[in-house]
Design a protein around this nucleic acid. Structure first.
Lengths: 209, 209, 209, 209
DNA sequence: TATGAATGAGTATTCATTCAT
DNA sequence: AATGAATGAATACTCATTCAT
């Protein structure tokens, strides 16, 4: 059961390689994110990403199968940060109503803080969202991301705080639409829907229960 | 102060020319609208529009400064149809509450019926929206389009139906965000936000007052 | 019925334009032919053709829809020269047997003189050949090109020179295969099938009747 | 003169290594053959071959100097199968005339069964053919492959079956051209030279003696 | 008014190959 | 022995736009 020196070396080398690979992937990721925000989804190009990090265009293909693979990767990462943000907001409260409000605010905040990611998640690539959702459902994670709300609603119903007769999925979707409306207008029409309006809208939200 | 024959002729000629010009502009406009719907905002290209009406690409430039100019024109037209749809919905009712509901439903319906136009109006080119809004404001039409709501709210307040202390602009914006949320999710995430959910959300809307 | 000066000018301008266009097309044609022989069918690229004539790559697209269109054009031209060569050889004789021999020699000569064209015609793009043949058949030109032979065979049969029971199409095809064998080996395996062998083979041909 | 244990071990190791090496080469070879048939000469790529056998592209370079080296290797193998097919056909007969006919039919059959290989052998890479031929001549195998015919002709002359005054090399070349014509048209112009025509042409062949 | 000519910039992607490890 | 990293060179094609006519 002893490990030979050669094995240790090989393992270390493998780790270094993997580390390097991840670094590179992150680098591409960051540059891609930067460019996505600067040039928009349409103007986004692999060549520019490569140029941005000082590599040949073909190098990208070592780390991502093709353009869509890179984009999906950005998408996934964005989704994780997003989910984490919502989760974290929820954890700070115990009462379902408070949780809902916290989630709503965190939702909009995330969108305003990371407009590029939010666009990608919910405004430009609905196909990726469905794809990811299917995958999560298969993995049993039905309540991830925007679906957290559903869970909270159910929990609220169980505690007798919300009327039991309503369909929790519909309620969750409606709430989603409400915060999405605020967030997406804030992103795509900042002049017409400025921060003050966002804030006011957020304050109006709780009244909807 | 008499008008010479030459002047009359010149004037008639000018009118014919202008007529011709407008016809051509309309033709381009219609084809462009058709293509925008078929190929989407990203796939939209001047060459194809020109080909579609049987003219050389360069001809377009006689009638529109550049691509963006044509797109802005499409934008304006879309905005007019949109405003008309909302207005028409409003006219069918007299009671402010009913008007609001009708407007909301018409709003979402327009978005679902004309997703490309809706995208152009409120999801992709916020810059054009501001530009147009500024122009309308200068022309004294402050209550056009999504702003109709504001007028209705004020009128409701005057009739003592809505609480007078709230800022009508904020209320209008909040309502806008609500319907936009439903409409835009219906467009960009049809799998996750299908028709049934849209309908359910629309039914939940009035309760928010 | 008089022709106005303006009309004359317009017509002249049109002609000049067309002339220019044809010149350009010919220029591209020639360069393409040159490159096809230098770089082979696989290495053939529009960019290089453009570079070769000192134009931007995109310019080619003004004169040919795409790469395949240019190639088909080369193909057609090649086919015409080829047909003309065979026809001319035939015309020099009246006796069917002599015609056949003359055609055979002209066939091989053409292949050796224009290997690139011959490759294109009969060794690399059978699809284009069928396409063209279908078109010619529709136009009633069933005996164009390699099919001249069939006509000669029939005429020979009518004159009682060839046995009447054989299928002229099969005979023609067999003769085609014979000359094609000589020609194509001469082109693709010049070391193994040098000129002396070609000549000897050609001399053996007539014996096959 | 005794062989030390160390030497024996070294030798065994060397053999194992060589064995392994050959296995790997064969593996690459087989995959390459498969891909050549599936994707054709132009579409053939080292990357895909490597992927096909589950190795990194660079690994190929351990076993073949470069792409052309691998292709030459495929070429050689194709040539061997081809020669074997002809040889086998010849062995089934004793009379030179029958041998010639059998060889001719086997030749065309091989071409139709293995069009990609046949293309490689006689239609696309005449350079490889010469190279191989030179090598075989140096090795004293002057009558390999398409040259078998020459041997048969000579043997026929010796038996007084064929006129002794003709140059056997020329006769052989002529016969080669005949079958090559049929085979290559069958491959590159299948529409214009379909199976029925091929068959008819094959039947016409013997008459040429 | 309309258009032909031409271009420059740009796109994703594929490939053979080298080099260090 | 095998491979990961990286690259340079290509390719077909599309687009918005300018200019002279």
């Amino acid at each position: 059961m002893t490990i030979t020196r050669a094995e240790r070396i090989r393992e270390a080398s493998r780790q270094r390689r993997q580390q390097r690979r991840e670094n590179m992937q992150n680098m591409i990721h960051e540059e891609a994110t930067r460019q996505l925000s600067e040039r928009g989804y349409e103007g986004f190009s692999l060549r520019e990403v490569a140029e941005g990090i000082g590599y040949a265009p073909t190098t990208i293909y070592r780390y991502f199968r093709d353009k869509d693979d890179l984009i999906f990767s950005l998408f996934e990462t964005a989704f994780q940060s997003f989910s984490a943000a919502l989760d974290s907001a929820r954890q700070k409260h115990t009462h379902p109503t408070e949780q809902l409000e916290a989630i709503g605010r965190a939702y909009v905040q995330f969108a305003l803080d990371h407009p590029v990611q939010y666009r990608l998640l919910f405004m430009e690539r609905g196909d990726l969202l469905s794809r990811l959702y299917e995958r999560l459902k298969l993995a049993g994670n039905a309540y991830v991301g925007p679906m957290i709300v559903e869970e909270v609603v159910i929990s609220g119903q169980n505690q007798g705080l919300f009327p039991p007769e309503v369909n929790p999925q519909y309620v969750a979707s409606f709430l989603w639409a409400q915060v999405h409306g605020i967030a997406s207008l804030g992103i795509s029409c900042p002049d017409m829907f400025p921060t003050t309006v966002i804030e006011a809208s957020l304050c109006s939200l709780p009244k909807t229960f």
